[in-house]
């Protein structure tokens, strides 16, 4: 395996493998087959592709109907449009009706950079976290993405997956423990209890690099991969809070409602934790 990979490519390859075995798997796209890198999937499974055209709301609603009829639709669309333009369809036609639809938000966060704020998705985790009956994931490397898709291809739970655009370095050495189950976080660096860095997705490798820099300064960090944003590994977060002096979260998202908020909400009932909002903005 290469040392880095684009998560979108891995998801498409893994979905194609799942489609080999299950003809009910469908890729649903709103004229986003190019940006979702679906070409290898289409080459093998053109009959398992549903093109909706530029109509993200309808892509979710039609997928609700497909899922109701036993299909396993994976909707690929830019995260910004999928989670904001289509959010009522996600709430009603996926979550509320309990239709087994998987939503793949591509080019999440600031991936689209100079294309502007219409295409940025810095609220998607806040929005999807607030929808009941919807799992939320942010895979951080190729092994984790592959294992996550293997799970999603057979699970019956509605889910949202947010991925970015650039290639991400390997964090795990294989798929085995890269994604264990919904609600399970992974400790990926265990240098000590001076500080815990909690992150996921595209920023997890930055947390790991930060832990290395801290170690050179004599500060021992633990790094936690919160791949499952919802459900959340509350048990692990509490263990961290028990034995760590400081917890810092890193994410590519608005301060409101994202991973940091999820951690703060999970730990706030303890009453023994001081929460501080310190904002560091990175310039890409």
């Amino acid at each position: 395996m290469s040392e880095q990979a684009k998560i979108g490519d891995v998801i498409v390859a893994e979905l194609s493998k799942a489609a080999d075995k299950d003809r009910n798997i469908l890729a649903v796209t709103s004229d986003s087959r190019g940006s979702a890198s679906l070409a290898p999937y289409i080459k093998k499974h053109e009959e398992q592709l549903v093109e909706i055209g530029i109509a993200e709301q309808n892509s979710v609603t039609v997928s609700g109907g497909l899922a109701h009829s036993g299909k396993r639709p994976f909707v690929f669309a830019p995260a910004a449009f999928l989670t904001m333009r289509s959010i009522e369809q996600v709430k009603v036609d996926v979550s509320y009706s309990n239709n087994n639809v998987k939503l793949i938000g591509i080019s999440g966060g600031n991936s689209y950079k100079d294309l502007g704020a219409t295409h940025h998705s810095l609220q998607d985790l806040a929005i999807t976290r607030a929808i009941p009956n919807l799992e939320v994931y942010t895979p951080a490397d190729q092994y984790q993405a592959a294992k996550l898709i293997q799970y999603l291809a057979i699970s019956n739970e509605p889910a949202y997956v947010r991925i970015g655009k650039v290639a991400l370095p390997n964090i795990y050495s294989d798929t085995k423990n890269a994604f264990i189950k919904p609600g399970k976080a992974n400790i990926v660096v265990e240098n000590g209890t001076d500080v815990a860095l909690v992150s996921s997705g595209e920023t997890l490798h930055i947390a790991i690099e930060t832990a290395s820099l801290l170690k050179m300064q004599g500060i021992n960090a633990t790094v936690v991969d919160l791949v499952s944003i919802k459900p959340l590994d509350i048990e692990l977060l509490n263990q961290l809070a028990d034995k760590t002096n400081l917890i810092v979260t890193l994410e590519e998202h608005s301060l409101y409602g994202g991973l940091g908020s999820a951690v703060a909400e999970a730990l706030s009932p303890r009453g023994d934790i001081k929460l501080e909002l310190l904002v560091f903005l990175m310039n890409q």
Binding site: E47, V62, G65, L66, H68, S69, V92, D93, S97
Partner: peptide
């Protein structure tokens, strides 16, 4: 769909035709 006989939850308008279209396409496939 907590009620036997009801397939999909509706109420917010503008959803039924898309849902029905998805079911119809699945039938074709």
């Amino acid at each position: 769909n907590h009620v036997h006989g009801i397939e999909q939850n509706t109420g917010s308008l503008g959803h039924g035709l898309g849902l029905a279209s998805g079911i119809a396409l699945a039938g074709k496939l």
